[in-house]
Design a protein around this nucleic acid. Structure first.
Length: 887
RNA sequence: GGGCGCAUAGCUCAGUUGGUUAGAGCGCAUGUAUCACACACAUGAGGUCCGGGGUUCGAGUCCCUGUGCGCCCACCA
């Protein structure tokens, strides 16, 4: 009879843990995850957003990787040659901070260790903890092509980074500049604008008097940062400010210092703000820097890299930390009688997103990338539709940022990262080269002799190497078959929080170096929040660990839940109840499969769905085809919520609730031909369900595939169903819908009249058409079983005191005399009658409106007419039924 | 200051180019140990589609406006 593994009976309960461990290895070992660069079929590629190498899986990962895996599995089943490129990111600042913290526990400090020793430690740390995230990805069922795993600091990727750097430098798109940067005094590094987070701070506005030189007059300025006054080199007033413009050109004696500074006229000074006069500290404020440039002002840097006051400040303040200096200066100004007042003031203060400390605009020499130039083609590519955002509204966010893009500060004063490929000669001459050898050769040429060079100490912003990810992982700058085949990739799946950090920069670099966009579509998913909609955070204690959830409910339950909640434009509120219901869904499928096995519904490889004769089988095959197509088109539209819902509805509400119940009378009956056909159909439908569920719930479906099909194939690599839509017939659908309506109606009457579920009662039909007669002959046994009837008879007249329900032209009579409460039944009928009467009123009003009849499309009008007719018939029949009760 | 999103059942959310009686899950109520499944089955209750105005024969859906909530960017006088 049966052969292969499917002869093993399906256990009474599904054991996710055992299944997940076994099947993941089976898939991975079989090579199912691997792409085939030599293949002739269409490629499909997704680049993983590389998680931090030392990180561990959180719910945001859970979501993004579930979506990616769902897409990859779906594409794979549709016969595409899929590459889901795995890898991890070195995450410069984040990782360096983690390792520094670890070292601090041992009483070690990177500065005393030195660069080389420290980097050794970081690599060691990476070796120890770097596997965590990839192991966890496997637990999610992620079907990544593991042998192709890359790390952003791999030597090959370093070569790509250097090549890009050198070329952009030669094209003058990377340059060194001395200007204000966002300086993080804790990290002791410059950071980019994007790494700065504004935080609302309740501070003060201090009003200081500055004496005008050679007069008794004072000019008053307001500041939130008193300590910077030591670096003031001017006071600005608006050139048209009537009250203050007479001071332009005068000199001010800057208190606490001996310096004389000018009053300048500049439009930056807003007469409405503060006192109308503003102190100018060009070395410590971005706006003041611009004012300083316009007026050729001196720039006095008063901080060292720790934001401690330096030798450019009066001796008294030297060595003070910035906030300590602030207090002292306020006190000193007050004792000089130069503090006018203090006003409470709420303002935004920039903080380093990693260090959490206020950043300091600080004058230093850094490497910059000319993002404006690179952004132009990246903007155009989206405008022309070469890359599309889903949901579309993110396009605007992308545009807005790209159009106002500023130079990108790419150098970091860290050790962990790609060291900048620039070398300096003794005189400071710069040699930007692919490697030291090339730099030496350049120096030899420049100096006419071998000259020792020192390498730039800085490393590149992590996002610099991430920006190259879509092509560096494929082997660029080598012209590999992979690069040729998988670039541009199909879709990038990511959160909107890194649209600027990463998406925009991949676009810029991809277009510049590959001449094409890195991905055709960008799918932006939401943020995962807790059940109450709060952001998950350790401090709030509301973090849900995906691995805990997997342990408790199974991986498939978590994945399915995340998909169902993935509605575009809405954050995901992850409630345990939802995960539970997904787990229940998996159990439902499991039990349905058990039913099939118990009833010997055996998969037949040569089953032809067009050959079935039984209406229930024709019907379910049509429903299956519809469901498969619906799921596919919803997945194509990235509607994971709708597609998972469609799957759920079909499996539970169509297959389990109705079809399996329909099979029962046949499978326990005596018509062997019908039985055989139904068994084969059931197995076939179950197989199709496993296929359509597989992208969402890979484990349980693969496990059941072994039992149901058992021919040694793996579901992961089977083909997604594609059928002739002609398999769905309107007749079968109408007929089975009618059966469902009859059963539901009778059940409803029974329940409302409190007929015990165990009581089998008779029903009589009155006024049945030929079609209904025929249908009753076919499906009578089925209706009897599901509506718990003892028999279905016929009558020409309505007996007294019975319950009735009307389906189309037919009245179904439940002779419950003595059982039912007449008054209650009357009320039930009256209620239903009222509902239809309401409908009549509404539709009549519409049809009586001449402009509706004139202007609405004909079919809509026709439909309304039918509705009216139907409603009138219902009212008439219900009226009759009521009369029969009164008799 | 600039921009974006959301508001539908007690809760979480669907609702396609405007067109039957606005749907689902959870929760709730009632009943059921029925031979796949109590993580289940059956039946039911539950809605001012945020307020106001407009377009239209017809608006949950389109436009304007108001309110509430959330997010992004800019902003250290």
């Amino acid at each position: 009879m049966r052969n292969g593994p499917h002869t093993m009976s399906i256990d009474k309960t599904y054991d996710p843990a055992a299944t997940e461990a076994r099947l993941y290895s089976k898939w991975e070992d079989s090579g199912a995850f691997a792409c085939d660069p030599t293949s002739k079929v269409d490629p499909y590629c997704i680049m993983i957003p590389p998680p931090n190498v030392t990180g561990s899986l959180h719910m945001g990962h859970g979501l993004t990787f579930t979506i990616q895996d769902t897409l990859i599995r779906f594409a794979r089943m549709r016969g595409r040659d899929t590459l889901w490129q795995p890898g991890t990111d070195h995450a410069g600042i984040a990782t360096q901070m983690v390792v520094e913290r670890e070292l601090a526990k041992e009483g070690l400090d990177r500065r005393t260790m030195g660069r080389e020793k420290f980097l050794e430690k970081v690599w060691q740390w990476k070796a120890e903890s770097g596997g965590t995230i990839t192991k966890q990805l496997r637990r999610l069922g992620a079907s990544l092509d593991w042998p192709r795993e890359r790390f952003t600091l791999d030597p090959a990727l370093n070569r790509a980074v250097n090549k890009v750097f050198v070329q952009l430098y030669n094209e003058k798109l990377i340059y060194k500049d001395k200007r204000l940067v966002n300086w993080d005094p804790k990290m002791l590094s410059a950071i980019s604008d994007l790494e700065v987070e504004s935080k609302e701070i309740k501070g003060n506005l201090w009003y200081f008097h500055y004496p005008i030189d050679g007069s008794d007059e004072m000019i008053t300025v307001a500041t939130t940062r008193p300590e910077t006054m030591l670096g003031d080199t001017a006071v600005a007033v608006h050139p048209e400010n009537g009250k203050l413009k007479h001071l332009i050109g005068k000199m001010v004696r800057l208190p606490l210092t001996d310096r004389l500074i000018p009053v300048v006229g500049d439009e930056y000074a807003d007469p409405e703000k503060g006192t109308g006069a503003v102190k100018i500290t060009p070395a410590h404020d971005f706006n003041d820097f611009e004012v300083g440039k316009r007026h050729n002002l001196e720039m006095i840097n008063i901080f060292d890299k720790h934001a401690i006051l330096n030798e450019n400040t009066p001796e008294k303040y030297r060595g003070m930390e910035r906030f300590e200096a602030r207090k002292q200066i306020i006190a000193d100004m007050e004792s000089l009688g130069l503090l006018e007042k203090i006003e409470p003031h709420v303002h935004a203060v920039p903080h380093g997103d990693r260090s959490g400390v206020p950043i300091e605009p600080w004058l230093s020499e850094q490497w910059y990338c000319d993002a404006k130039t690179l952004a132009a083609p990246a903007l155009k590519a989206v405008e022309e539709g070469h890359t599309k955002f889903v949901p579309e509204q993110w396009t605007n966010t992308y545009y807005a940022w790209m159009r106002n893009i500023e130079p990108w500060c790419i150098s970091r004063q860290l050790w962990w990262g790609h060291q900048i490929p620039a070398w300096y000669g003794p005189d400071g001459q710069v040699f930007v080269a692919h490697d030291e050898e090339e730099a030496n050769a350049m120096a030899q040429k420049a100096y006419g002799k071998a000259t020792p060079l020192t390498r730039d100490e800085d490393v590149l912003d992590t996002w610099f190497s991430s920006a190259l990810w879509p092509f560096s992982t494929l082997g660029w700058p080598e012209q590999t078959p992979e690069l040729e085949r998988y670039y541009p990739t199909d879709v990038l799946v990511t959160g909107f929080d890194i649209i600027f950090f990463w998406v925009a920069r991949m676009m810029m670099m991809g277009l510049h170096f590959m001449g094409d966009v890195p991905f055709r579509t960008v799918y932006m998913h939401a943020l995962v929040r807790d059940a109450k909609g709060q952001k998950m955070s350790k401090t709030k204690g509301n973090v849900m660990d995906p691995l805990d959830i997997i342990g408790a409910y199974g991986c498939d339950a978590l994945r399915f839940t995340l998909c169902t909640l993935s509605t575009p434009g809405r954050d995901i509120k992850l409630a345990p109840a939802r995960i539970e219901s997904s787990r229940n869904f998996a159990t439902k499928l499991w039990n349905a499969a058990r039913y099939c096995q118990m009833n010997e519904c055996v998969w037949q490889a040569d089953f032809n769905p067009a050959s079935v004769k039984q209406t229930i089988n024709k019907w379910i095959i049509g429903e299956t085809v519809d469901a498969v197509n619906k799921v596919a088109s919803q997945l194509d539209a990235y509607r994971f919520d709708l597609s998972s819902h469609s799957v759920y509805e079909f499996v539970w509400n169509v297959f389990c609730d109705w079809y399996l119940e329909f099979t029962k009378p046949i499978l326990s009956g005596t018509d062997e031909a019908a039985k055989a056909e139904t068994r084969a159909t059931t197995a076939w439908v179950l197989g199709q369900m496993l296929k359509m569920m597989h992208p969402f719930m890979p484990y349980i479906t693969e496990e059941l595939w072994e039992h149901v099909v058992g021919d040694g194939t793996m579901l992961i690599t089977t083909r997604w169903p594609s059928y002739d839509t002609g398999l769905a017939t309107k007749e079968a659908q109408n007929e089975m819908n009618w059966v469902v309506r009859v059963i539901t109606a009778i059940r409803g009457v029974r329940a409302e009249l409190n007929v015990p579920a165990s009581a089998k009662i008779e029903t009589l039909v009155k006024g049945a058409s030929d079609q209904t007669q025929k249908r009753l002959a076919t499906h009578g046994a089925l209706i009897e079983r599901l509506a718990r009837l003892s028999a279905i008879g016929e009558t020409a007249t309505t007996p007294a005191n019975v319950a009735q329900t009307i389906i189309d032209e037919t009245t179904f009579i439940l002779p419950l005399e003595g059982v039912i409460d007449i008054a209650q039944e009357k009320e039930r009928l009256a209620k239903e009658c009222a509902k239809w009467a309401e409908e009549i009123k509404k539709v009549e009003a519409k049809l009586a409106n001449p402009s509706f009849v004139d202007r609405a499309p004909e079919d809509v009008v026709e439909e309304h007419k039918e509705r009216l007719e139907n409603a009138r018939a219902m009212v008439a029949k219900l009226g009759e039924a009521q009369k029969s009760l009164a008799a």
